[in-house]
């Protein structure tokens, strides 16, 4: 898909909470310390953090990098599966805090881990059609993992905001995008339930690998591109192994995915997963370098994006903290503190 007028990312911002739970702590409590763990540690939100507060911080960084008047933003869209309210938009609170109200759209998006890139596709469409000069897409989560479940090792908090605008103002221009969706029941959470359910091994081949590889390959084929044409690539990262394997399937090397592969240090941040990986790449990318990003959301689908970094990256990068700054800002907690911070204790 290519919009009517050229667009790109004019600003980006990441957010990761300060606290970290080592996966070995989950293994200690639930598996006698014997489990092979899928990540080193995961980020845990503080008691006063949620998708609203985290989105506000990432969005402020995106606006700061773009150096624009927030009143020019015509859409604030937040993708998440952990919105604080069941009914009342996260996005209106974020838009108000940014100073983007009242002349804007605002809505919350839901598509498991690809809610953020679904919002990005829509933002590309809105700006690309000429209906808006700027549209803000956010993917942010405070993911839920049932105590003792395999997901508890990785379900983490964090995400990123991407501000879409005209290509001539962009720090990374969009070459094309593509979406690939099927009805695949690999992971879900029913209404009123606190924790999600999943299909164990079913989450692999028919779900994650099929959708990401198909979306990525279709986009590359449509553009006549090969993995070697890209400097960097980033894929949805529920654990360390899955993105490494899908990268290999598509022909990408370990070096090409290295700066965007953050899951080992922060865990799976769900709707923010691949877009925070993209911010990690933008923090080190040079003008002219090409990036492939492919998300994955259970249920299931993938969005693929082909971007080229511009000269504007140099000036905008240091207007906000780098993603690695947030990753290095870490305070380790134990499982007991984690249960308090994630409200797993009944009081």
């Amino acid at each position: 898909m290519v919009p009517n007028r050229p667009v790109g990312i004019v600003g980006y911002g990441a957010y990761v909470p300060r606290y970290r739970l080592p996966a070995s702590e989950v293994a200690r409590v639930w598996a006698g310390g014997r489990d092979e763990v899928p990540v080193r540690e995961k980020s845990v939100p503080g008691l006063d953090e949620d998708v609203v507060t985290m989105s506000i911080e990432a969005a402020r960084h995106a606006v700061a990098r773009a150096n624009i008047d927030p009143r020019l933003i015509r859409a604030v869209w937040v993708g998440s599966e952990s919105h604080p309210y069941a009914v009342k938009p996260t996005s209106t609170i974020v838009a108000e805090a940014l100073g983007a109200v009242p002349h804007t759209q605002a809505a919350d998006w839901e598509f498991a881990c690809k809610a953020g890139t679904e919002a990005l596709q829509a933002a590309i469409g809105l700006v690309g059609s000429g209906m808006a000069r700027y549209a803000l897409s956010i993917g942010m989560d405070t993911a839920q993992g049932r105590p003792g479940d395999a997901l508890e090792y990785t379900a983490a908090a964090g995400g990123a905001a991407l501000l879409v605008g005209p290509a001539e103002e962009s720090l990374a221009t969009l070459n094309a995008s593509y979406s690939y969706v099927t009805d695949t029941p690999d992971f879900w959470r029913r209404a009123e339930e606190s924790y999600p359910s999943h299909g164990d091994r079913f989450t692999g081949e028919p779900a994650y690998f099929r959708h990401i590889s198909a979306a990525g390959q279709h986009l590359m084929d449509a553009l006549g591109a090969k993995a070697g044409d890209y400097r960097w690539a980033v894929f949805h990262q529920p654990n360390i192994k899955f993105p490494q394997r899908v990268a290999k399937m598509l022909g990408f090397s370990a070096e090409q995915i290295a700066p965007g592969l953050l899951v080992g240090d922060i865990g799976n941040v769900y709707a923010g997963s691949c877009i925070i990986g993209l911010t990690g790449i933008l923090d080190v990318a040079q003008p002219g370098e090409r990036i492939l990003m492919v998300s994955y959301g259970s249920g299931a689908g993938s969005d693929a994006f082909d971007l080229t970094v511009t000269d504007r990256i140099e000036d905008s990068r240091d207007r906000a903290p780098l993603t690695q700054d947030y990753i290095r800002r870490r305070t380790q907690i134990d499982y007991a503190t984690y249960t308090r911070y994630r409200h797993k204790l009944k009081t």
């Binding site: 008691l47 006063d48 953090e49 949620d50 609203v52 507060t53 506000i56 911080e57 604080p84």
Partner: peptide, 14 residues
């Protein structure tokens, strides 16, 4: 930073 100040129980506003 903008954070949660309080919530009015489980049913009220944040």
């Amino acid at each position: 930073v903008t954070r949660r100040l309080r919530a009015d129980g489980d049913q009220g506003v944040i």
